[in-house]
């Protein structure tokens, strides 16, 4: 590693995976850019009614 590394990460996609990756990284000392194509984050999960197998609300 001769070139200097950068302490930031780009996360592409604001669904459940992207959001949680971003949170973990931000909480462990990295600057995160969360990039989402649509107008809101949450992805498919936030449009689900309940989730299996616990029937929790997806929100």
């Amino acid at each position: 590693m001769n070139s200097k590394k950068t302490g930031s990460v780009v996360v592409i996609g604001g669904g459940i995976s992207g959001m949680l990756s971003a949170l973990d990284l931000a909480n462990s000392g990295f600057y995160v850019y969360l990039v989402e194509k649509g107008p809101s984050i949450g992805g498919v999960m936030s449009q689900l009614d309940k989730t299996f197998p616990t029937n929790d609300c997806a929100m």
Binding site: K5, I16, S17, L20, S21, L25, S28, F30, Y31
Partner: peptide, 21 residues
């Protein structure tokens, strides 16, 4: 996988942690 990907990125960048926050 979200957390796993964060750990993989964290491994690669551990020496520059806390430099941009």
């Amino acid at each position: 996988e979200a957390s796993a990907a964060a750990s993989a990125a964290g491994d690669a960048l551990s020496e520059v942690r806390d430099t941009l926050t």
